[in-house]
Amino acid sequence: MSNSSLKTAAIALSEPTLFFPFEICKGKAGKKVLISELAQTVLCSSYNQFVINFCMEWQSNKNGFVVHTSGSTGIPKPIRLTREQMKNSVEATAEALNLTQNERFLICLNAEYIAGKMMLVRGMELGAEMIIIPPKRNPLEDFDKKMWFDFAAFVPMQLQTILDETPEKIVILSQMKAIIIGGAPVSYSLLKKIRSTKALNRVAIYSTYGMSETVTHIALKRLNGKDVEESADTYRTLPNVKIKTDERGCLVITAPHTLGKEIVTNDLVSIKNEKEFEWLGRADFVINTGGVKVFPEKIEVFIEKYFYELDIQKRFFISSLADEILGEQVILIIEGLPFSKKFENDFLQHLKKNLPSYHAPKQFFYLSEFLLTKTDKIDRKKSSDLILK
């Protein structure tokens, strides 16, 4: 699908609409708004009015939009995206996921950030009926199970909550054409739940790779389906995205939605071919211990599986401390009450036995509660600093 075909197809589009199903205004619940009527629309909630205002800006053919990075790996910073970049991103996603005109989208990501904004832009460009739900843990909890959508985007916590707390709403998920999950890694427990829920077998569910600078995702990883291997950890790029690595082994991206500009990331990857790569971890998280480079994220996946098997529901992450002999030593920081000494010893022996040399944590530390970013990701640096003080 080219830019020109999108413009030609726009003649046949139904007018995009926004629907606020649980908005109560002037004593009436539910308010449907034609895009052409946005200027005359006044809603009660400030969030829904924010959505209206952004859509008005887009429909006015505004050429540039300022978004902020998430702050998960540093201080949030503003970046400017052009209308052309955002439309190119829509085109690539529509082609990759076979999104067509006049479908129904569930918009439940925070529209103050790029992922939520781009769901709105996709809806407007494809003439969708957009059902707006202010961001919440379970965006389906208030819907009747007869409700249906063609496409939705969730953060992992939202999909996990739907599957765990409202299994009767899985029928809504099962009717979707595609679901994308982003904003945080998909946990092992969520992955197992997705793959073991038979009703989801017909839905294409993907984990996304991207960032604000690339106008959300530039690659997708299929999480379910009969052809997906249990250990598959490979992302496939969207159409017309080019990838390579720099001298550090970090991913470099060029795409229509970067306007041909190279975006140099801090993500260490293993490139399989011109379209596929495996994500290894963040370059700024790598721990050098005893001359060995350790990727914290790989250890975390192993620990996550171990905790899942023991039904331990604790958040954690791998970090490091300075070490006079090793340079750095690997440590494990866990949220909540400490484990017993016996469990710690057994756990440590299990890690030493099953992980490569120098990968097992030397020490365990505990925090009553992790510090989070504005987008509810664990702030590793600030949480680690609490330990080091």
Results as ranks from 00 to 15, higher is better:
K352Q: 13
D323E: 05
R236S: 12
S70G: 13
D150C: 03
L159R: 05
E23T: 07
K198W: 04
P185G: 12
S319C: 05
Q175H: 13
S89G: 14
L81T: 11
A152P: 01
N63W: 01
T82K: 10
V330Q: 04
E141P: 00
A360I: 06
V301R: 11
R83D: 08
M157Q: 08
F277Y: 04
E129M: 00
D227M: 03
M124F: 06
V67E: 15
Q49G: 03
N240D: 14
E335M: 08
Y209K: 03
Y188Q: 11
K145G: 02
V269L: 00
V42I: 15
R122I: 00
K242N: 10
C250E: 04
F105N: 04
A232S: 14
S36P: 11
L81Q: 12
M1F: 01
K244M: 04
E278V: 13
T234Q: 09
M118H: 12
P296W: 02
N88C: 12
V121W: 04
K117T: 11
E274K: 12
T373F: 07
V42Q: 15
L120I: 13
L18S: 07
D311N: 15
N240L: 04
V67K: 07
L126A: 03
L332S: 02
K242H: 13
F151Y: 15
T17K: 15
W148S: 01
K382T: 05
K374V: 01
C44Y: 09
K31A: 01
R104K: 13
L140R: 11
L99Y: 02
S383Q: 08
S368K: 14
L200M: 06
I331E: 08
R83H: 15
T254W: 01
I218P: 10
F19G: 00
A128Y: 00
V228A: 06
I133L: 08
E278S: 12
A153P: 10
G74T: 01
E125C: 08
L81Y: 12
P256C: 10
Y47F: 14
H359G: 03
S189H: 10
L310W: 06
E230W: 12
K117P: 09
V155W: 02
P256F: 11
E335A: 07
D385R: 05
M86P: 12
L97D: 05
M124A: 04
Q160M: 07
C44A: 13
F364C: 05
T8A: 03
E129I: 00
R83C: 08
N110H: 13
F105C: 03
S383W: 06
T375Q: 12
G291R: 07
N240F: 08
T234V: 15
L34M: 14
N88M: 14
A29G: 01
L388D: 02
N88P: 10
V301Q: 09
I378L: 06
K275L: 07
K272P: 03
K377C: 10
G30N: 09
R83I: 06
R222F: 05
A178K: 07
T197W: 07
A152Q: 05
K275C: 04
I132P: 02
A10V: 01
R222P: 15
I133W: 11
L13V: 00
Y47R: 09
P139M: 04
E168A: 14
V330K: 05
L163G: 02
L310P: 01
I287N: 06
L81K: 15
A153Q: 09
V286D: 00
S340C: 13
N138Q: 07
L238H: 09
I287W: 06
Y188P: 07
K31L: 04
M86N: 14
